[in-house]
Structure formats: C-alpha cells, structure tokens
Design a protein around this nucleic acid. Structure first.
Length: 886
RNA sequence: GCCGGGAUGGCGGAACUGGUAGACGCACUGGACUCAAAAUCCAGCGGUGGCAACAUCGUGCCGGUUCGAUUCCGGCUCCCGGCACCA
C-alpha cells in the first residue's frame, strides 16, 4: 500500500481488473446468489453525437447513470448501462466540406476519440451492446420500419411549403434560417413547395397527449408541460362561410364554394365583421390574379423566414380581396381579407374575424377601420380602450339573435348544429404537425424508394418502395460533399437502379431521413444489438420499457416525442408490448463556471481564462475584484455563465482527470449541486473533494497499521463511546440511503465526508471495541462512496483485506442501517419557550412524559425565560422536543 | 400573454412527512509545523450589540393558519427555462 493517494496508479489498476473480469457485461434473466432471478433495471443516457470532444456535461450525465447502476447493482438488481453514437448528421458533412474528406472517416475517428476520453472515467458500460447509427445493420431497420409505415399509411409522400436555399440547393430547417438567409450560404431563403415523406404523428396525437397525464408520472412536470404545449390540443367548431368565387380555367367553384374556418370561440360567431385567409390560401391566390395589390402583398408576405418567432414579431397586415363570403347564420355579406397573421398550416388557413373578442382581430380591424361588434355580455363597460383585458373572458351572448342569453357551451353546440347542413361540426385541432423526415442531405439513412419515370411508351410505376429483401439500401461512405447540395444526386452508382415492378431503368430517391429517426429507437437496439433478422427480439421485452432515462432538457420535446410516437407505431405493428418507452425520465441541469472579461472602448469584451486572472477578496472572503496575471490591471467578474468556448470558461474533463483523477471528477460533478439543477463549476470545490479523497486514503493507511482487522461482531458489549460511533455512522447511512433513492447524489457525497470526519475524530481511542466499531464504519463508508468514487474504494477494499471477508466490493451487498445501532439509551431533546430554542436536556429513553416535562422546566436556560410567568401549555414531541408556552 | 420551476451566509448548497435554520464543502481569518513556501493539522466563521456569558434580528416581500412555518394557505416582487399571430 502506497503511503500517499495516487489516483493515476489506483485508477489504472482498478480498470484493468474490471476489464479482465469483464464485470460490466450484462445478460438477461441473471440470477442472484439465492438462485432467484434478479429484478432488472435499465438505466440509459441519451446517446451522444460524436463531436470528437467529451465535455463536462457528458461527464455529469454518465456519472449520474453510473452511480445509479453501481448502487442498484449492489442492491441486487440486474442493471444495464449501454452506450452508442448518434452518428449521422450535418456536422460531419460540414467537416467534410472543410476538410475535403468523407464524413464517414471523420465520424469513425471521432467515435474512437470520444471513447478513448470516456474510458478513464471508469464507467460501467456494457460495450458489447454499442450501437452506431450510421452503420447499415442499424439503419437497415429505419428503412424496414419506414416501409411498414408506408404500407399502413403512417408514412406518406406530400408536397409542402418549406425553406429553400437557392445556393446550397437544399431544404433548410427553420432553425437554419437566420434573418431570412441561409445560415451557411447567406442567400435569401425562398419558400418552395417540395415533395417529401411525412410520418403521421398526428394520428397518435390523442394518445400522446393522454399518456402525458396517465403514464408519464415518472417524468418531470416541466417536460410533461412542454409536450402538452407542443401537441397543442384545441377544441372548437369548424364550419363554412359560403361564396360563389370560381376558378376561371375550370369554371368550378373554389373549394366547392365553402370557406372553412376553425374557432374555439364559436359563441362569438355573431360578432364576425370580416374573414381573413392566409397568403397561401386558394382564395388569396385567386384574388391575386385579378388584383396587383393583392398579388404584391402575397409576394411580400412570403419573403423572409417562416420561423414562428419571426412571424410573431411581424406587424399584422392585410389587404382586402374585394371578395365577399356569406355568414352561415345571418346570411350577411362579410368582406374577405388576406392577412399575414393567418397560418396556412393551422386549421384551414382561414379565420373568422371577431374584433370585439380576439386581440389579433382587434388590432387588425383597428388598423383597417373594420367594424367592431361586441356580442358577449361581460358585465363591464365596453369601450375600445378598456376591453382589451377581457378578450379571453366568457359570458352570455348578446346582440346575437337566437343565441341571446346562451352561455358558452350551449352557444358552441348551437353553432355546430346550425352550421351542420353546410359541413359544420365540433372539431379538435392540433398544433402538432406530421413529421417531415426528408432531408436533401447526404449523411443520413437513405429513404428506400425507387422512382420509376417510365419512358415514351409507358407512364412509369411512380414512387416504388424498395422490396424488403433488398434492404438495406446502403449509403456510399466514400463521397465528399462540396457544399452544393447532396453528393448523392451526382453519384450515378447510387442513383441508377432497376424498377422493382417493371424492371426498367429507374432512379433511387436521394433524400435521406432526419437524424431524429435514428434516435427514436436506438435504446431498444441496445437490448438486442446483434439481432440479424429482426429489428428487436425477445431481449427487448426483458429490458424495456426503460426504467430510467437520463439526459438534457434540450430534448424535452422533439426527441422524446418522436421516440414515444415511434414506440407506439412499433407496438401497433406487434414489435413491442408496451405503450411508453421511458418509465422515468431524469433531466440533468447544465454546468456553468465563473467568467472574466475586460471591455474595450467600443464595449467589445475580451474574455479571460480562469488561470489568467487572480481574484482578490476582503477579509470576510467576499470577492472584491480580479486582476489579470500578465499586466496586473483589473478585469471584470462576469459571474456564473454556462460553459462556453466563446467565454473561455469551459472546463475540460481530461484536464481535471489529469490533475485530480477520475474519482475526484466524478464525485465533484455530483457534489456540486442537485443533479437536476444547473451547477456551478469551481476549481477549488473540486480541490475540496480531492482533499477528502486524500484524507480517506490517509485514513485507510492509518487503519491498516492501527487495526488488526478486528471482525465486526458482538456489538452489544461495546463501550458507550464505541456505541456512539456506531449510532452516528448508522444515522448518516440511513440518510444516505434515502438520498440514493431520490437521486440526490450531492448529499451522498456529504454523507461520506461526515462519516470520515466522525472516524477521524475518534482515531485516538484505543481498544478492541473501538477497532471493531471503526472497522464496521469503514466498510460502510467505502460501500456508500463506491458508486461515486469506485476506483479508490475498490483499492482500499483490497488493501484493507475486506475482499477475503466479503468478496469484491461490488458484490459485498449494500449496507443497511442496523436498528440496534440507532437505539440510544439517552436522548437529547430540545426545549423551546414560545417556539424559541432555550435549552437542551438529556433524558433516559424510557422516561415518562411527566419526567421529561419536569426535566425541561428545571433546565437553567428554560427557567430563565419562564420565571414568574404562568405556563399555559406544554407540548412534548416524543424523541424531538418540548415547547413551553407561557 | 400562457405554461413550468426557483429565491436560504461571501459562494455551491443542506434541513425526508411543519419541530435545534445554515449540515457538508469552498472562500476567508487566526494558530501549529517549516529557514521559507507548498502540503498537512487545529480553531473561528449569518447580521447587530457585548470582553464574555448572553441578548436580539434573520430563509425574496406583505398577510394568514399553528404552541411552533424555509416547509402549509392567500396576495405580490424578481429571476430562470419553455411555448407563443394556434384562431
């Protein structure tokens, strides 16, 4: 045993031993010592994108996972912790453009690099289950399920308005449009109608929403609320205004003479003073043909980004079409406008305008001097200035003819019934849209479709699914994108093929799937990573649904919603037997760190690295400022900010491991704060944890020399002092066990520190009973700390000879508090006078209430405050306190 | 605007079902060891008054319930996160 703590040597030895014994290989239906099957527990972290660099956020995420695994494994669970790579995606393509190398090469190199950076952390990952989403044996099943969905009508092809970058020749996601320009090319983005494949997630909208309330009890309320929000259910009425506008070329009435609108406030139908349609609406397009002003308005409205934020900030504008529609109840002629605030993608792309009871309609009507007609009695004076606060309020209908006096629900029913003949009905509308999965990108799963265009003698077979036997459609890995669209479009080897139906020359679809497809089911593939003939197999039924999913809050909607949807689709195809994939979800907080800057005359900030500055304090420890090391001049304290490269406050895991070792890195990221909250990184805090581990090692060395390894038994005969030590250790253990179950790992570290402090305090005590109690305490401390600092505790467990007595630490069983140790002969009670602490008394365990009261009143500190005052009441809380009310 | 979460020393944070507020750690101050420094160890460390014992105030603000409130209830303020022309 070395005399000093040397994490590098210890961590290498521990990891070598674990690798040799293959301890983290997990099999299904494993049995415990008793011969009974162990309960399973599947704990999984969201899979990382292989950027090539492991950061502290990863360390925190995987450490939470690892601590959970080691704790539960010691408690007798069969625990799975897998790892994989979200390996498709745009960064690889961008790197490829920059480096002139294929994305595959970059990706595989990054995976190797990240794995190497993860390795020193000592994570209990079962690497035999590694999944890499860019490998054909994985994405084959994306294609396979896609074809199944196509057959069932869950996947379908449609043409829809998207952001189009004319320079890069690709569709851009809304997030990739910045100020109306392509994020990479800088070109003005156009809106184009592009055909693509969609997954009908809206078919599952009801179930997805319903389960948020009934089946996601183990999820944070914030994430549940966000999903609910995103799905966005609105209940109302859909009905039609009529018109007689017909298309010149066909002569037919546009949309059969009906302008459908959706509203949640059908009770205000008598307050309609105009209707408005989206610029893309057929009636708007028609009006544009005959009216240059309308045409120009539509052109302007379509320029610029389509993000919801941009749209929301735009001023409400419109133009009259000169057309009129007929109100279904009053037969009144209502003017039809085109409004930039009407969304083609929500409802029918048209709204009824009720300026008196809708904020947007009011602003619009006010601007264009349209009539405003109140039809709800709110019992308040109704003036233009004052009523804006009352938009959302409900009341009885007024000025509404046959609806006068009706309350909200009755009015809604009335309108649904009265418009029924014209197609009106009660209707639920969703914010959720079908999931467009086509990307004009190279580095993704090829969509398994063949386009048969036919020739002069035949019309062709159209878009033909690739037959199942021909899967996977392999993505060529050797292409180098040049930035102008997908290189697949130029790769004849890939494109040219024969039509599976007619056998004539045809072309492969060159679009690839959104990478969110890859992450929608990888956690199931971990369960049966080598299943060659099926997507998942019986092993998936054993592990899933996942018991604990751990990841960042940034995936609260997209990934977690897609994965839930994908699971339900698989269930309906008979592939899995459960409804929801993730029983419990844990969202970890992000990491922040102190930052420092100096601003120049123009206000531009120069950010300093922490080691470039010295912070000064006053004699109470308050920071008073900071100076740069190089010139000694002051720099500004920038406070705690999210770790980011631009602010030079990123802490690299490899630096921390090199300086302190993995155990310190692990224990400190847990100790820094409650895992679900954001935590502030502090170098001196990490040093503090390292100091603790050093002290523990030093104690271990002392213990080996001082103690003869006295066996832990016969606790009844201990001296009072040794009994007190046991009481303290077991009390701390009880608290630590509770904190483990609620994943509050920060206070578990505190508990281990307290145990060591307690042990250090009684080092001078001599005698066999003390040795015995200290020995027991140390076995408890090491096991309590093991999940957080597995290397050091593994080493000490060996050095102190516990392996011979109990086996390897991971197999030694989880320590439970001994109820005998928690029993005390004397209890210390707190005495309060009028709720204020005035004294402490020691009472025998079996003391009667009267005896306790007498002792309490006799206490000097208490007597001082009760003197000369009549005692109104005495409250005795058994085992805790006495409150004297005077 | 809507939804969710939060506010406790100089700092990160603790206090599980109302019961000793500030555990544990950091920073800071003083001391020991040392030629010196680092490391280590010991002591102190919410504010105010006091040499001290002690007193008094104190968990964002106002009020309530209670013998007793960081914890429960009502009303605010501020901060963080998400959504947002959704008809």
């Amino acid at each position: 045993m070395d005399s000093t703590y040397q994490p590098k040597i210890i961590e290498k030895a521990a990891q070598d031993a674990w690798t040799k014994a293959d301890v983290y290989r997990v099999v299904e239906h494993a049995k415990g010592k008793s011969g009974l099957p162990k309960p399973k527990f599947y704990a999984c972290s969201m899979l990382p994108y292989p950027s090539g660099k492991l950061h502290m956020g990863h360390v925190r995420n995987y450490t939470i996972n690892d601590v959970m695994l080691r704790h539960l494994r010691m408690k007798g669970f069969n625990v799975l912790m897998p790892m994989g790579w979200d390996a498709f995606g745009m960064p690889a393509e961008n790197a490829a453009i920059a480096n002139g190398a294929p994305p595959a090469e970059w990706t595989y190199q990054n995976i190797a690099d990240m794995k190497a950076q993860m390795q020193p952390l000592g994570l209990a990952i079962d690497w035999t289950r590694e999944v890499t989403t860019c490998k054909p044996d994985y994405y084959k099943w994306n294609q396979w399920l896609f074809l199944k969905m196509l057959k069932k009508g869950i996947a379908y092809r449609k043409t829809q308005l998207v952001n189009w970058d004319p320079v890069d020749q690709t569709v851009l996601a809304n997030e990739q449009v910045i100020d109306g320009r392509g994020w990479r090319s800088g070109a003005l983005v156009e809106k184009r109608e592009i055909p693509g494949y969609y997954l009908a997630i809206t078919k599952y909208a009801d179930e997805l929403l319903d389960s948020v309330h009934t089946k996601l009890g183990g999820w944070p309320s914030q994430v549940r609320a966000m999903q609910e929000n995103w799905i966005g259910k609105s209940v109302g009425v859909r009905f039609a205004f009529t018109h007689n506008v017909s298309d010149e070329t066909s002569g037919k009435l546009i949309q059969e003479g009906k302008l459908f609108v959706f509203t949640t406030r059908a009770d205000t139908i008598m307050g309609v003073t105009f209707c408005a349609v989206a610029p893309e609406h057929p009636l708007a397009k028609h009006a544009a043909k005959g009216d240059a002003k309308v045409a120009e308005f539509i052109r302007n409205a379509q320029a610029g980004g389509t993000t919801e934020v941009e749209l929301a900030l735009k001023e409400k504008e419109g133009v009259a079409t000169g057309l009129f529609v007929v109100h279904p109840l009053t037969q009144e002629k209502i003017p039809l406008w085109v409004g930039n605030y009407v969304l083609m993608t929500y409802g029918d792309g048209a709204v009824m305008g009720v300026p008196a009871h809708d904020e947007r309609d009011f602003v619009f009507a006010h601007k264009y001097k349209l009539a405003i007609k109140p039809v709800i009695d709110l019992g308040k004076p109704y003036t233009i200035d004052a009523w804006q606060a009352f938009y959302a309020e409900r009341g009885l209908c007024i000025h509404s003819g046959p609806m006068n006096g009706m309350p909200f629900e009755q009015a809604i029913d009335y309108v649904a019934a009265a418009t029924k003949a014209g197609g009106g009905e009660r209707k639920t509308t969703w914010r959720l849209r079908d999931w467009g999965i086509s990307r004009q990108r190279y580095w993704g799963t090829p969509i398994p479709i063949i386009h048969c265009h036919g020739g002069p003698d035949s019309p062709g077979c159209g878009a033909v699914p690739v037959p199942e036997k021909d899967l996977p459609v392999i993505l060529p890995e050797d292409l180098i994108p040049d930035g102008s669209g997908s290189p697949l479009k130029k790769d004849q080897r890939f494109i040219k093929c024969a039509c599976p139906i007619c056998g004539k020359p045809a072309e492969r679809e060159t679009d690839t799937m959104d990478t969110f497809v890859d992450s929608s089911w990888y956690f199931m593939r971990y369960c049966s990573p080598d299943a060659a003939t099926s997507m998942v197999d019986a092993r998936n039924d054993y592990w899933m649904p996942m018991d604990q999913y751990i990841g960042g809050i940034e995936h609260a909607v997209l990934h977690l919603l897609y994965a839930r949807f994908w699971t339900k689709v698989m269930r309906d195809m008979g592939l899995v037997k459960f409804d929801e994939p993730f029983t419990n979800l844990f969202t970890q907080g992000m990491l922040s760190a102190e930052c420092f800057y100096r601003a120049d005359m123009a206000g531009k900030k120069r950010w300093y690295y922490p080691d470039e500055v010295t912070v000064t304090h006053d004699d109470k420890g308050r920071p008073t400022g900071a100076v740069a090391v190089d010139d000694g001049l002051p720099v500004t304290l920038g406070g705690m900010e999210k770790m980011s490269k631009s602010k030079n406050n990123v802490v690299e895991p490899k630096d921390i491991i090199a300086k302190f070792g993995a155990d310190t890195a692990r224990a400190y990221v847990m100790f820094a704060g409650p895992p679900e909250q954001s935590a502030a990184w502090s170098d001196s805090g990490a040093e503090g944890v390292h100091r603790f581990l050093k002290r523990l090692y030093t104690y271990g060395v002392w213990s080996k020399n001082a103690s003869t390894g006295a066996p832990v038994k016969a606790f009844e005969s201990l001296s009072a002092g040794a009994k007190k030590l046991r009481f303290e250790i077991h009390s701390i253990l009880q608290q630590a066990n509770h904190d483990y179950t609620r994943l509050q790992y920060n206070t578990v570290v505190s508990a281990a520190m307290k145990m060591l402090n307690t042990l250090d305090d009684c080092k001078t005590e001599q005698g066999a009973d003390w040795q015995m109690a200290r020995n027991e305490a140390l076995t408890i401390l090491l096991r309590t700390l093991y999940p957080l600092a597995p290397h050091l505790t593994w080493q000490l467990w060996h050095d102190l000879g516990y392996v011979a007595q109990y086996g390897e630490i991971i197999d030694a069983g989880w320590p439970l508090p001994d109820t005998n140790a928690l029993e005390r002969d004397e209890l210390e009670l707190v005495v309060q006078v009028n709720g204020k602490l005035r004294g402490h008394i020691l009472v025998p365990k079996a003391a009667s209430k009267e005896a306790i009261e007498a002792l309490a009143l006799a206490d000097a500190g208490v007597a001082k405050h009760t003197e000369g005052k009549p005692i109104k009441k005495l409250i005795v809380v058994p085992g805790r306190l006495i409150n004297v009310v005077v």
